[in-house]
Write a protein that binds this DNA or RNA. Structure first.
Length: 571
RNA sequence: GGACGAGUGGCCUAGCAUGGAUAUGGCAGCAGCCUCCUAAGCUGCAGGUCCGGGGUUCGAAUCCCCGCUCGUCCGCCA
């Protein structure tokens, strides 16, 4: 339940009535300005033209015509705005009651009865996942969590690229490169062990044409449906995926299902796409290869030729991607892809091809810019790369140092567990807090920042709540909330009341970074309260304050949960 | 060359779709705060041509045009 909603509804209702009294039925916006100004405000500037009056005059008149209401304690006009103050006591009461009743479900929206298929990660299974790519699973997983909290039925999916040169080359490498020629792995994990074979096979292919011929041969047999080739390639992909999967797991990302690209060759759906596209008047031939002429569809760029077969008739990645999307359309009501910005043009081509096929559905895409290093774009082959596993390890090591600095009363094991939660959380938070399309330069100091706008800031506030609650005697959950009257308390409750609408906004607009921002604001408001309002041994206000602490604890848990970050009870 | 995206105090960042009331926070810096619920915290100070230039408007970080810088793409690759 959204504690703010009844107040907003009241503002809309009363303003509509007042506007109608002025003789015009015009639309208006309800803004939420900064709290010192007002709780809700309606700018009267857009109304000025239609009513042919000065904004200030309109605001004045509206203010006079607003009927009185229990929910709104003050209505006034100021500089062309019609302002409202909500009944703070009612808001305090309803907010605290809502959080204490809903607990881990505070902020959860109504069931939407809509299936969302959210594709994310989908990195080629040829090496360990690195930080340049890690933005994808983190954005995808967080968006999935947000949409679930909004009430959608979300399934996440990893599209596995088990077709094509990369993974075939890796397979060739595993089967043909002697172990002695491979740089020893820095970590005992399938993806780290195998990537050396991939790197060495790449070098060998460049220097020895025979290697290239063998790879090409495997590729042809793969396309022809040779089960032996498909199976062994599938095996290497699976091995890689295990390694990638466990990296993802250690930052709290779990993918619901995997769809293998080879499926669309084996089940003939890629061929069906070819047949459909060939039937289109937009279909052209060039030396035996088929393409769609996208010129008229104003897809920008130099090349408007969208090839979907090679001259030998075999399908291309894009053809199979088309088949994959047709498959997705049958399985859900909404489709979201989290993709690197390099896929943008490809996706507009895909959308155009779908239109040509007479399909009226199109996937929605969330694009993100690549994470680079200060010295440039990450590249596994150039060795200019930071693996996610290394980042996680480093973050957890640093977190452990911090825990050891301040805790002498808990077991080594417990400290280690806390450090894991802080380390993983920090990484997620650091990447998720900036909007996806912003360029991102990875910096160790920043990624490992445990102060200010960071995951531990939120976790720490939560641990403080838990600590107070642990020491508290039993208390009345229907305490007199009117006793919560100082500025810090009121501010904290305000922030608490904003969580449901923030989740809704993050989900509907696909702006996941508003959740970390909200979390920071909540933790910050709590820390301020903590500084000025003693809770334990505070006499008659104690029960009310304990309720506030408990409500904050739930809300912080809810925020952390939707961010995929653990909420340790002590740190 | 074309297309798309980003440019906000020393550094990172919110706000931009629907133009409006003092541009959001954080890091780093400076000055304070632990006999009291964990100082991964709190308070205060300082720091800004919102990339540049035009335009629209009563009003532009936000809209339009022209530049600049950075990123990405423009394969019978995936």
């Amino acid at each position: 339940m959204d504690p703010m909603q009844p107040f907003r509804d009241e503002v809309v209702r009363l303003t509509s009535d007042a506007v109608r009294k002025l003789g015009a039925d015009v639309q208006f916006e309800v803004e939420v300005p900064s709290p010192e100004l007002a709780d809700f405000a309606i700018p009267c500037f857009p109304l000025a033209k239609k009513l042919r009056k000065a904004p200030a005059a309109i605001a004045d008149e509206l203010a006079k015509n607003i009927a009185s209401s229990d929910r709104l304690t003050k209505v006034w006009a100021d500089k062309g705005y019609l302002n409202f103050r909500v009944n703070e006591q009612m808001l305090i009461d309803s907010t605290l009651k809502a959080v204490l009743a809903e607990k881990e479900n505070y902020g959860r929206g109504e069931k939407k009865d809509k299936k969302v298929l959210l594709e994310h990660t989908s990195v080629n299974p040829t090496g360990p996942i690195h930080v340049g790519r890690a933005r994808n699973p983190l954005i995808g997983d967080t968006l999935a969590r947000i949409l679930r909290r909004c009430g959608y039925d979300v399934t996440t999916e990893y599209y596995v690229n088990d077709v094509g040169k990369q993974v075939v080359l890796l397979t060739w490498g595993i089967n043909n490169v002697p172990e002695s020629e491979v740089k020893p792995a820095d970590r005992d994990k399938a993806d780290h062990r195998l990537v050396g074979y991939y790197q060495r096979a790449n070098e060998m292919m460049e220097s020895d044409p025979e290697v290239g011929r063998q790879i090409a041969d495997m590729l042809v047999r793969f396309e022809a449906g040779d089960p032996a080739v498909i199976e062994t390639v599938g095996e290497t992909a699976k091995l890689m995926l295990q390694g990638i999967g466990s990296s993802l797991e250690s930052v709290g990302v779990k993918v619901d299902q995997f769809t293998w690209e080879s499926k669309f060759i084996l089940n003939g759906q890629a061929k069906e796409v070819v047949a459909k596209l060939k039937a289109s008047p937009k279909c052209m031939q060039e030396e035996g290869a088929s393409y769609l002429d996208l010129e008229e569809l104003s897809t920008q760029g130099k090349s408007t030729k969208f090839f979907f077969t090679r001259s030998d008739g075999t399908t291309l990645y894009t053809t199979r991607d088309l088949a994959y999307h047709l498959d997705k359309f049958k399985r859900a009501d909404m489709w979201i892809n989290v993709l690197g910005e390099d896929q943008k043009l490809g996706m507009t081509h895909l959308a155009a091809a779908l239109r040509i096929m007479g399909v009226d559905k199109v996937p929605e895409c969330v694009f993100y810019s690549f994470v680079a290093l200060p010295e440039g774009r990450m590249s596994t082959r150039k060795g200019r790369v930071v693996y996610l596993d290394d980042l996680i390890e480093e973050a957890q090591d640093r977190a452990l140092e911090e825990v050891k600095k301040r805790r002498f009363d808990i077991s080594e094991e417990r400290m280690f567990r806390i450090a894991q939660q802080i380390g993983a959380g920090s990484i997620r938070y650091n990447i998720i807090r900036v909007q996806a399309e912003k360029q991102f330069v990875f910096q160790w100091e920043e990624a490992l920042n445990f102060e200010g706008n960071s995951a531990p800031f939120l976790q720490y506030a939560h641990a403080r709540c838990c600590s107070i609650l642990r020491k508290a005697p039993s208390y009345d959950r229907n305490a007199n909330f009117a006793l919560l009257s100082n500025e810090a308390e009121k501010k904290l409750i305000r922030v608490l009341s904003l969580f449901p609408s923030t989740v809704r906004e993050a989900g509907e607009k696909r702006k996941i970074h508003v959740i970390p921002a909200y979390g920071h604001e909540l933790a910050s408001a709590f820390n301020q309260f903590y500084g000025v309002s003693p809770v334990l041994n505070s006499g008659e206000v104690q029960d009310a304050r304990l309720c506030l602490v408990e409500a904050t604890m739930w809300a912080l848990r809810d925020v952390l949960d939707t961010l995929g970050i653990a909420a340790p009870e002590e740190m």
